[in-house]
């Protein structure tokens, strides 16, 4: 297993797509931050506030609250396209092997498909960690520079950050599972995007149809949990609920992955 893992790690750090998508994700996250700061500055400019107050005298002096390094870092997980960048990288990294039939070179050396795919999975989790950590650090630094405020730590910050990281790992696992089943880059990307867009809509329709007072089906979607904990006012209960959801998705993804890999052993 260690040799296969070394093989995958070496491939990761020699892979252009890893560096390209890391840079793209950082660039997009920074761009979003700069645009958000620009909007904040415009909306909170004296002239704009005066113009708004003329039509609505109850408007506060600050229309948009300022962010800071810590708040931006927490919010970026939901706001930035990091999940999309990781998705494209995962598909590029994995489908390259399928398209070039690389697996047969590794299998013929006495390694099972299960071992190979577990090594790929761990490698991709490491890659996601690196991409996410770099994004978080740069978002923190840029936001601090723009707003001139690091922000203050709060009680649930560290568990929240760890859970958000775990959420990204779960996204990675989902993408990897899909890629293993579909085996081709373009269809996997299309299915993922459609799922991310259509699944929340489908759950909303179920809500509307069933009209249950005490239950919202949208909480079943992993992405909704992710969005709900990507802000500063998060409670321990919300974190616990998100943690349970992420763990369940992680386990289901792992099981489906192993089953589909075992089916390839014909």
């Amino acid at each position: 297993m260690s040799k296969v893992f070394s093989f995958e790690l070496h491939k990761l750090f020699r892979s252009k797509s890893f560096y390209i998508w890391t840079v793209i994700s950082i660039a997009l996250s920074t761009l979003f931050l700069v645009v958000s700061f620009f909007v904040y500055k415009t909306v909170n400019s004296e002239a704009f506030i005066l113009a708004v107050q003329e039509s609505d005298p109850s408007t506060n002096s600050l229309i948009m609250q300022p962010e800071n390094g810590i708040i931006s870092m927490v919010r970026f997980f939901a706001k930035s396209p990091i999940a999309f960048c990781i998705m494209v990288f995962v598909y590029s990294f994995v489908c390259d092997d399928f398209e070039n039939e690389i697996l047969k070179n590794v299998i013929s050396k006495g390694y099972s498909r299960t071992v190979i795919f577990i090594a790929k999975y761990i490698t991709l989790l490491i890659a996601s960690c690196i991409i996410t950590a770099l994004n978080a650090i740069i978002v923190f630094a840029v936001s601090t520079a723009l707003y001139g405020n690091i922000g203050e730590s709060y009680g649930t910050l560290i568990p929240q950050m760890l859970l958000l990281f775990f959420g990204i790992m779960t996204f990675t696992g989902l993408f990897f599972m899909l890629c293993t089943i579909v085996k081709k880059n373009a269809p996997a990307v299309i299915i993922s995007i459609l799922s991310l867009l259509l699944l929340p809509q489908a759950l909303s329709l179920v809500n509307m149809g069933l009209k249950l007072k005490n239950f919202d089906f949208c909480v079943l979607w992993f992405g909704s949990q992710f969005d709900s904990i990507s802000n500063a006012n998060v409670t321990a209960g919300m974190l616990a609920g998100a943690a349970v959801c992420f763990v369940i998705y992680f386990i289901i993804t792992y099981i489906v992955l192993i089953v589909s890999v075992r089916k390839m052993e014909v």
Partner: peptide, 19 residues
């Protein structure tokens, strides 16, 4: 089964980890 975007040496280097 080779990586088409890699040179001969890089292809060999990758699989060398297995052996």
């Amino acid at each position: 089964a080779v990586y088409k975007k890699c040179s001969a040496y890089e292809n060999m280097k990758r699989f060398a980890f297995l052996c």
